[in-house]
Design a protein around this nucleic acid. Structure first.
Length: 286
DNA sequence: CTCCAGGAACCGT
DNA sequence: ACGGTTCATGGA
């Protein structure tokens, strides 16, 4: 990959396999990016970006000097995905899913942003999650930024319910309060997967599934394997038909896929949800 | 009308 | 530890 600064606020990335429509919009690992014609606009960590596909890379605008390192990390552009794919070889369906999605990446979002989005995601659908996260940014964030823990902790429960959060409103406020009062999300990236998982379970609105999403999309812990209804169907069909619950599915995934479990999960999830691979259960579209 | 969605909290056993 | 119930919300 090459990075070339072409103006005071624009950078060109080239020689990188990255599908922004898939990663930023369709694969539902982040919910607030928007497609604007051929471009994609989003915010993270108090920064704004406008990304336009271009040849074997993309143009990144609204990117001040020095910010390219932030986005390189956010888009996970330096990891060698080919090496990870070897771990899928034991499962033909997983290998098929990976090879259908060559431009897939696992985002490294700020853990706080992933936490908020995936508390909202609980027992919800992708369309509504997008609408709610967008409302949180537009109605609560300061000049278009992602709302901080302090802002969310101080937002009234009624306000969050009006934005569509439903019964998750008190979970968001409770978790925001713990983070605002010192629960260090980012430091969880420095401890083991199991330890970080146990810590995350202390937050209201966070169970095994949401914890794994925060670990995968927000802490860079690539062995995290979130088991939602789609991944459960796919895993029961191809990998672990005898699994009695989601925890056993997660253990089977760790045993089979190791540190590549996260990328494989994300590919299985997307392919199953979009009907790109066959499932016994009836399929649906976006 | 019922069923479903990137589930978690809460309650029994 | 494990299984069942309930929890907003909106689209199909």
């Amino acid at each position: 990959m090459e990075i070339e600064r072409i103006s005071r606020n624009a950078v060109r990335f080239s020689g990188v396999c990255f599908d922004p429509q898939l990663v930023l919009i369709d694969s539902a690992q982040v919910f607030h990016w928007r497609a604007e014609g051929p471009a994609f606009e989003g915010v993270s960590g108090g920064r704004t970006a406008r990304l336009t596909p271009e040849g074997d890379g993309f143009l990144l605008e609204k990117c001040a000097d020095g910010e390219e390192t932030y986005w390189t990390r956010y888009f996970d552009l330096t990891r060698d995905y080919e090496a990870l794919r070897r771990d899928a070889a034991l499962c033909p369906a997983a290998l098929e899913a990976l090879e259908k999605l060559p431009g897939m990446r696992i985002l490294r979002q700020p853990a706080w942003e992933a936490l908020v989005a995936f508390i909202v995601s609980a027992n919800n659908n992708v369309g509504r999650i997008r609408r709610i996260v967008r409302a949180l940014i537009d109605e609560l964030g300061e000049n278009g930024a992602f709302p901080t823990p302090g802002i969310l902790a101080a937002a009234g429960e009624e306000k969050l319910r009006r934005l569509g959060c439903g019964y998750r409103a008190p979970f968001l406020i409770g978790s925001a309060r713990m983070v605002a009062e010192g629960f260090s999300l980012e430091s969880l990236a420095e401890i083991s997967y199991e330890e970080a998982h146990a810590e995350l379970l202390r937050l209201p609105g966070v169970g095994d599934k949401v914890a794994d999403c925060v670990q995968l999309f927000g802490l860079g812990q690539s062995e995290a394997f979130p088991v939602d209804v789609w991944v459960e169907r796919a895993m029961r069909q191809w990998v672990a038909p005898e699994a009695r619950n989601k925890k056993e599915i997660r253990r089977a995934a760790h045993a089979l896929f190791g540190d590549s479990a996260g990328l494989i999960q994300q590919s299985l999830f997307h392919c199953a949800r979009m009907g790109l691979i066959s499932l016994d259960a009836p399929q649906k579209n976006a």
